[in-house]
């Protein structure tokens, strides 16, 4: 682990002053919240900040449900949000996505902000024994393209990077039209979650639209996403405690056996949390009937590109959508 100075500022303005460059790929300063991803990156020598600025105690950790919808403080933990009565009742998709993430211990430590900004699990990114990784070292190449890429994305990929964004939470949130509130030295702003993460294109090292030093202060979910029938389906090689091979977040409004409106997003397959408007449109007005669901889900494959080991995801993600819609539809 690279030596760093640990800063424990006591308020947000001090954080911003210290963290001016944080988040940039080569920044000598980084934020740490729950630390569950940052400590891994430090241990593996992937991130080497000279200065580590703790966000502990300076960010909102509240969970509120009001007429505007749901507001999650950036410092709320995965466990707190997953178990929150209001979230469980009105935004079960979020709770399910969280309960399918990591382990109880990690969920007690990890925060909302950190979850959205965790780095990819691409094993080449995390092993400095590989020199080629455009995300870690811009311009160095991508070891995954013709390497073992079973873990990698089929949607939103580029010739420079095919890494998956690993968050389950983000998949659920993007399906629910969540917005992220940010604060930087330049003031406050908010960004739809769907626009928070960038596609890799030819700059995979630039992962989000955050300005250097900007922090996430809260996540909001509009009230109209409440009370939907939903399901988070996560598929993986073992039964628990593993990142998704494929996951599907689905929330639907139904009229008897007919889908009035659907929201669908995928995890494990996209370079960012992947919303599927075309599938959603195709599902609208369809019956909860396997054939109809299947043809709508097929649209998820538009533009999908496999690289060999991950080809199976293109088929599996369609089936995951069908199954998730079926389960959501069967909920009372």
């Amino acid at each position: 682990m690279h030596p760093f100075v640990l800063e424990r500022p006591c308020d947000l303005s001090a954080v911003l002053a210290l963290g001016a460059q944080a988040g940039r790929n080569d920044a000598p300063v980084e934020y740490i919240a729950g630390g569950t991803d940052m400590v891994q990156l430090l241990q593996e020598h992937v991130r080497r900040p000279d200065r580590l600025v703790s966000l502990a105690g300076v960010l909102d950790d509240g969970i509120e449900i009001g007429p505007q919808g749901l507001r999650l403080g950036a410092a709320a933990t995965m466990a707190e949000v997953a178990a929150h009565q209001g979230v469980v009742e009105q935004f079960p998709l979020i709770s399910q996505a969280l309960l399918n993430s990591a382990s109880p211990q990690v969920r007690n430590q990890a925060t909302m902000g950190g979850n959205l900004l965790q780095r990819t699990r691409c094993p080449y990114f995390r092993d400095v024994g590989y020199q080629a990784c455009n995300k870690r070292a811009p311009g160095s190449g991508c070891a995954a393209l013709d390497g073992e890429n079973r873990w990698h994305a089929v949607l939103g990929t580029s010739d420079d990077c095919i890494a998956v964004h690993p968050s389950d939470l983000a998949v659920a949130l993007v399906a629910l039209d969540a917005t992220v509130e940010l604060r930087g030295t330049g003031g406050d702003r908010s960004v739809p979650l769907s626009e928070l993460h960038r596609l890799p294109r030819d700059t995979p090292h630039l992962e989000t639209v955050l300005e250097p030093g900007e922090v996430i202060t809260a996540i909001t979910v509009p009230a109209n996403a409440a009370g939907l029938r939903s399901h988070y389906l996560k598929l993986r090689d073992r039964a628990s405690f593993e990142f998704a091979a494929v996951s599907a977040a689905v929330a639907i409004e139904t009229d008897g056996a007919r889908i009035r409106q659907a929201r669908v997003a995928l995890g494990g397959v996209g370079t960012k949390p992947w919303r599927l408007p075309n599938v959603e449109q195709a599902l609208a007005d369809k019956n909860l009937e396997p054939g109809e669901l299947r043809s709508a889900a097929a649209l998820a494959a538009e533009g999908a590109q496999g690289r060999g080991h991950n080809d199976f995801k293109i088929e599996l993600m369609q089936r995951a959508i069908v199954r998730a819609v079926e389960i959501a539809g069967a909920r009372a």
Binding site: D127, G147, A239, F243
Partner: peptide, 25 residues
């Protein structure tokens, strides 16, 4: 253990990507 045929490195040399059974299995 996924051995990279290009260079012999073990791609998943950890306990997150090398899956062993957990309680739920």
């Amino acid at each position: 253990s996924v051995v990279d045929p290009r260079n012999g490195r073990v791609t998943n040399a950890n306990l997150a990507e090398y899956a062993v059974p957990v309680h739920a299995d």
